[in-house]
Structures are given as C-alpha cells and as structure tokens.
Design a protein around this nucleic acid. Sequence first.
DNA 1: TATTGTTATACTCTATAACTATA
DNA 2: TATAGTTATAGAGTATAACAATA
Lengths: 135, 135
Amino acid sequence: MTEPDEVLDGLVQVSFRVMALLSQAAAAHEFSLTQLRVLAILRDRTPKMAELADHLGLDRSSVSGLIDRAVRRGLVQREASRDDGRSVRVGLTAEGHRLAGQVTAEVASLMAPLTGDLSAAERKRLGALLARVLA
Amino acid sequence: MTEPDEVLDGLVQVSFRVMALLSQAAAAHEFSLTQLRVLAILRDRTPKMAELADHLGLDRSSVSGLIDRAVRRGLVQREASRDDGRSVRVGLTAEGHRLAGQVTAEVASLMAPLTGDLSAAERKRLGALLARVLA
DNA sequence: TATTGTTATACTCTATAACTATA
DNA sequence: TATAGTTATAGAGTATAACAATA
C-alpha cells in the first residue's frame, strides 16, 4: 500500500488532535489520559477490577496501580463485593464525581472549536458518519 | 455541560478506536505508539532533535531517550549537522525505512474495516468533513 | 483446581534540573 | 550569554510472573 486512504489518513490526524486535547484537559488537573478514562468510566459504573481492566484494555496488575494512585488522591474508593469475597468494586468518591464532571465540561469546551466551522447540517452528517464508523 | 455534543462524543469514541488500532499495530512489532510516530515522522524528514521534539510535542530530554532506544534497535541513526556543531540530525536506517513501510501497510489494513461499510460517496463526504475539522 | 486481585520486578515514557559543548 | 543536546533523577504507566485468598 504505502498510499494511505484519504479518509483513513484524516481519521488518524483527527484522532491525534483529539488525543492532544484530551491530554491537555487531563494535564490541567495533573493526571494522565488513562486516569481521565478511569474517571469517565466510573461516572456511570461501579465495576469490579477485572471489568475495569477489560474496559481499559489493560492487565489487572496495571489497573491495581492506577486505582492505587486514584485512591491516594481521594478520587476513587474500593469496596468489597458481597457476592464474591475475592472481588473488589471501584467507584468514584464525591470529590471524584465533582472532578469528573468538571473535566468533562472542560473537554467539551476545548473540543468545541473542532466543529465550530461546521453548519448544523454538516454536524449532523458528520455525527451520522462517525456513528457508521463505530458500528 | 455534562451533555456532550453528539458529534464531539463521536470524535472521541472514534479517536479511541483509532488509537487502539495504532497501538495494536505498534505492539505487533514491540514498540510504542510514540516510537510509531517517530518512524512515521522520519519517513519523510531528517530533522534536528529539537525539531523532532516539536513535532512530537515532547521535551528534548524525552526525545533523547526515544532516539537512544530506536538507535539501539537499529532503526534510526544520528548524524552531526554541518551547519551547527551543536545540533544533531536523526534519520531512519535502511532497516528503519523497511519497517516503517511495513507498519504503515499494516496500519492501513487494520483500519480499513472502519470505513468498510461506507459507499464511495460517503467516504468522500467523511474525508471532506474531517478536513474541515482539521482546518 | 480455577479465579480475583495484589505484589515484585523490569522497562518504557515523560518531565525537571543540571551539565557539556558550541554559538 | 544563549542554544542544542545529553544525563541524572524521579514518577507514572504497562506487562509478566509469582503469590494470597476465595470459589
């Protein structure tokens, strides 16, 4: 190949741009993109460690460390599962929820200019096409 | 906020998908996403260290380490600049070029399914919209 | 025996600060 | 003095392997 598809190339370029913005939003609060993902995931879930590892696509041992650091910062709590004595559920603390909400808002602000030049119709079309890509 | 724009949400989701595919392509050759970026950048440039750091958005000291490891793997070479005795140019070795080409092809293959369900017209439209986003 | 999570270990990535050499 | 690059150091992120507790 070597001549990459125009559209695929655009997807890669846009993805790097988006990741840079997400990293910037995370860095403003001194955490990593991965910690940002953890916060986002825990906003509407209280998964077991193994489930969280699956969501993130990481090894369980890596997630242990991530959660250790988030707990140390007071953003996340561990609690024992009653159904299975081996497993542990993780969830946001009140402060974690607050921060997750704030960062989500900041991400939206940072990203808004990306689609700022598009008309309502173009936005709708782009949204639909992205949904197809994700299908 | 808290209710993120549909389109922005799509961009974030697609970006994570793309990054996962790129990471997968890189991991198949046992290197990181950053090393993949280095290879891609050096495919058509022979920058000085400081220029490479700018492209990557990283500190020079971080790039020193990245290049050290790539040199150790025989993919990249350093050479002194003749115009400025302080600066160093970096470029791919023959093996680095070979590998960069191969990985680029593998990335294209991995990503192809993303747009596999789109018609030619839809692809064209998506490409145009992504170009607007990048503008 | 198998599974859940943690720990020990090792390496990559990254930044800051201090340093060397050149300008 | 200022700039280019490296080195020293420290911490986060990641995986593999070994382990404890529970199933």
